[in-house]
Write a protein that binds this DNA or RNA. Structure first.
Lengths: 195, 195
DNA sequence: TCATGATCTGAACGCTTGTTCAAAACAATG
DNA sequence: CATTGTTTTGAACAAGCGTTCAGATCATGA
């Protein structure tokens, strides 16, 4: 058994995924060829198939990793007040998405390029994340700190609003990420508050 | 001069655009071939080039028509109260987007497949639409009926939230479009209201 | 230093891509 | 009915696609 530790596969594997993520985000899954990914890695196209079964798996793995990280990183404290939990969700979502714009972009734009099996798996994970927010909203409705007619709609509305940040915000501009977090939190807080 | 009225071009032209819109929305610009569009129209691929210079122009024309219709259809009444103007915007946006899901999807997903010249033109139109909403928010901030720290951010947040409707809402489900309009209007109204 | 086996190359496979164009088809006018 | 000029076909072009695989390369453990 030779070449286990220090073998190139420990290096090339992650680089394949990184190159694919970068290119898929910039130009789209369908518009990027395996040869382009290989060129970005500095390798011939055939070598990619040591690290992925096919192009579809490469896309699916990127999306799955992203959503796994999302679900695993978000921590909700059910003993806190609904308002505190919601604020934490808002700030977490904005920050997490801002830190990985490529992965976010792919997860939202390339759903239709998944096979139906893979699509179902990804959708289930996305649904699980939405459920985390809906649980917070429901808790607030129950104890009277929130007032929304339909927690499912409010969940989708809040997530759409927050995810939109990554379509325009770039660090180094007029506003800091903290400014943006604070501003979105004010809007969300008021949107679900009792009138 | 023969074949002006009643010629096939009056029929085929719109059908090419319709087929392209349908297929681009379902599977993405890069993943759809000219031969597939031709098959949907019932014609050979070569015939498409009587109606479009190339594939890129086909995409651009679809987007441009959509945004022209958006800008032309939306009517704001600057003499009304900011709250009334905002409610009208919210309901208009939801309804307009719900009526043309394919065009909306393309306009949001295929921006990166535009050449940079075409992208700039489309972005300018999108910016003009955003400006219409921002004018309303600014009027409300000025007269004290709204309270948002940054009207630009609020504009983008509201539009992202409203556009998100088209990712999940389909007529015939649990909720009517009127229900959805009303619910989003409540959230937007509260989000920009003074606390 | 040699043998091992993971890693990579480079060519090849069959197929599809956007686009062009000469020739054919065809509807309407005179 | 002949002519006109628009519309469509069908073949062709060079290029690129995802994927496979025999053989070369090369770091490592013995």
């Amino acid at each position: 058994m030779a070449r286990t530790a220090g073998s190139h596969s420990d290096i090339t594997g992650p680089r394949v995924r990184a190159a694919a993520q970068k290119l898929f985000a910039a130009r789209g899954f369908a518009a990027v060829s395996m040869r382009e990914i290989a060129r970005e890695v500095g390798v011939q196209a055939g070598a990619l198939y040591n690290y992925t079964a096919d192009k579809q798996s490469l896309l699916f793995d990127l999306m799955q990793s992203h959503l796994e990280a999302l679900l695993q990183t978000f921590e909700d404290d059910p003993t806190a007040t609904p308002e505190a939990r919601l604020e934490h969700f808002v700030r977490f979502h904005i920050r997490f998405h801002h830190d990985r714009p490529d992965a976010v972009f792919i997860a939202y734009m390339e759903l239709r390029n998944l096979t139906s099996d893979n699509f179902a798996r990804i959708e289930a994970m996305r649904g699980a994340y939405e459920d985390r927010l809906e649980a917070i909203l429901r808790a607030g409705v129950t104890d009277g700190s929130f007032d929304v007619a339909d927690t499912k709609i409010a969940t989708l509305a809040v997530i759409a609003m927050l995810t939109g940040v990554s379509t325009w915000f770039r660090s180094g501009g007029r506003l800091s990420l903290q400014d943006v977090e604070a501003e979105y939190w004010q809007m969300v807080r008021k949107a679900v508050a009792p009138s």
